[in-house]
């Protein structure tokens, strides 16, 4: 699964030829995804494809195409003395993402640690293997973006197999980052012209970037020392316990296993998204819940992202996309919370 980065000359591709490639991807029966306002969606017609570097991140990330919001992991049949288990065929279709924001592009690399930790999740791995990420430089940021505070940036190539930089209205600089990207683009070499690294560099160097809002190592330290801090109460009072934040997040990965019977003898076992802000998250069969109140649940969200995941896998479980905050019905802003944790405010909220 690990992708070796390769060195290759930078190329230039015209918008028209890029769309030609997209058309071919679709014609070969593969899935092409692009970001929209609410969600990433499957492209059927390339003619109205709008590749806009200045667009806001879609409200929902594309993780559902690798880690679906619901999927069967096995089927079962019961007879008198026996239970028969039937495997699920995992769809191995190639999925090409065109125009992934840098804050989305690295998401699978971050999540793969979890899905290969104590168990290798063949569903995730199979889809991730067939996933091709064509990233696009981002020239927009708003008050909720903070990619630069979590080790990324609007021009980061991390996670992309191929990375695009808009040069002008009709042309993109194309960087081929991984072997997978190279393998994908080789059949289309005819469309590529040789590029000029200095030209794209001038553009990426001048992209406006969000200011660094916090030092993640200080946040890590503060979290370790302030598990019982009364400051969590503020956000605990505000948060309404939905899973908007977790479900739109490109790297949140909690799931719940549940059985669905069709009849007395047949059924299937489902793997469904779960969210740590739900009141019944980690509710034990006994009725006990270690995170019984909202402030403890929100504390879990921040700790998981900025401390536990770092401890376990050496990475922050957040790409700084700001989706969770932008979409939060009560405007809980994770950047604000994390940036203010060390300040002498009475409450985080």
């Amino acid at each position: 699964m690990t992708q070796r980065s390769i060195q290759m000359d930078e190329k230039i591709i015209s918008r028209v030829d890029l769309l030609n490639i997209c058309q071919d991807v679709i014609e070969k029966g593969n899935t092409l995804l692009t970001p929209g306002v609410a969600d990433y969606s499957v492209v059927k017609d390339v003619s109205n494809l709008n590749l806009d570097a200045s667009a806001l991140p879609s409200k929902i990330s594309y993780k559902s195409y690798v880690f679906p919001r619901t999927e069967p992991v096995l089927y079962y049949k019961r007879s008198k003395n026996d239970v028969q288990l039937i495997d699920v065929n995992i769809d191995s279709k190639k999925i090409v993402i065109l125009g992934a924001k840098p804050c989305d592009a690295n998401s699978l690399n971050i999540m793969k640690h979890l899905f290969n930790w104590d168990y290798s999740d063949e569903f995730f791995n199979m889809r991730a293997k067939n996933f091709i990420v064509i990233g696009l430089m981002c020239s927009h940021f708003d008050e909720y973006c903070f990619c630069t505070s979590v080790g990324s940036s609007p021009v980061s190539e991390k996670g992309s197999d191929i990375f695009l930089i808009p040069l002008d209205e009709n042309n993109y600089a194309m960087k081929i980052i991984t072997d997978k990207g190279k393998e994908f683009i080789t059949p289309y070499s005819g469309y590529l012209k040789s590029g000029d690294e200095n030209r794209s560099k001038r553009i990426t160097e001048n992209v406006k970037q969000p200011d660094v809002a916090f030092d993640s190592s200080e946040v890590y330290k503060w979290l370790g020392e302030n598990f019982e801090s009364p400051k969590w109460e503020g956000v605990g009072n505000l948060c309404l316990s939905c899973a908007q934040c977790a479900f739109v997040c490109p790297v949140c990965h909690c799931f719940d296993i549940t059985d669905e019977d069709y009849s007395y003898t047949e059924g299937r076992r489902m793997k469904n998204w779960d969210g740590c802000q739900f009141g019944n998250f980690t509710l034990h069969a006994s009725g006990h819940n270690p995170r019984d109140i909202q402030s403890k649940r929100y504390r879990q969200r921040v700790n998981h992202k900025f401390r536990y995941y770092v401890n376990k896998f050496g990475e922050i479980l957040c790409t700084g996309c700001g989706r969770c905050s932008r979409g939060c019905p009560v405007s809980v802003d994770i950047k604000e919370i994390v940036s203010n944790c060390k300040n002498d405010q009475k409450e985080l909220r």
Binding site: D39, S64, L240, C242, P329
Partner: peptide, 26 residues
């Protein structure tokens, strides 16, 4: 089909005040 079951609709609704929503009953 677009619904991701985040239950944000339930969470913001003043009238969705059930202590245990029917969807949480398993």
């Amino acid at each position: 089909d677009k619904c991701i079951k985040c239950y944000a609709c339930r969470a913001v609704c003043p009238l969705c005040y059930c202590q245990r929503c029917i969807t949480d009953k398993t």
